[in-house]
């Protein structure tokens, strides 16, 4: 958390020195955006809080944790591929799941497939690129995400 606070503080300061009006405009824009997602964010946190109360830690560890092995990657990749969750919700969600003992590499697979593979949006993508190209791109991205997760797991485990 601290790095982002420092980065934002320095960025604001530098921006302010160069252009006061632009900086104020940027800050205002940011705060407006934040207030727009606030109700959704609150309801998401509430729903996650209630759901997590009913799901035990054992559930996560069994299906997505270290014990689940390679299956954890596939579960994470599948959930990520079919989900249509905006980033401002998926990252807090990932941070919460992380606290339940899921490894960072599984989270990386989830985050990567979430962004690169869109099974629900295949019909939209196919309108632009054609169905075959779309399927190929999604399949390659799915494989790519698993590779990313595997490399991250290797790095986290051995360094």
């Amino acid at each position: 958390m601290t790095p982002i606070l420092i980065i934002t503080f320095i960025a604001t300061l530098v921006s302010f020195i160069f252009d006061r009006n632009k900086t104020l405009k940027g800050i205002k824009k940011g705060i407006t955006q934040f207030s727009k997602i606030l109700p959704t964010l609150l309801s998401v946190i509430i729903i996650i809080s209630v759901v997590l109360f009913f799901l035990s830690d054992e559930f996560f560890i069994e299906y997505l944790g270290k014990g689940a092995g390679i299956e954890a990657y596939f579960s994470a990749a599948l959930i990520g591929s079919v989900s249509l969750i905006p980033g401002f919700i998926s990252y807090p969600l990932a941070a919460i799941i992380l606290k339940s003992g899921i490894s960072l590499s599984v989270i990386a697979v989830f985050v990567t497939t979430l962004k690169m593979v869109g099974i629900m949006t295949i019909p939209i993508e196919a309108k632009y690129f054609g169905l075959k190209t779309t399927l190929l791109r999604n399949i390659l991205s799915f494989i790519g995400a698993i590779i990313v997760g595997t490399i991250m797991a290797l790095i986290f485990n051995y360094i």
Partner: peptide, 22 residues
Amino acid sequence: FAKEMFVALPVIFILVGLIHVW
């Protein structure tokens, strides 16, 4: 969950807003 997000998010949004104008 909430206490962390309500410190982090406004800060992140300010950063995003700044990137947007620059």
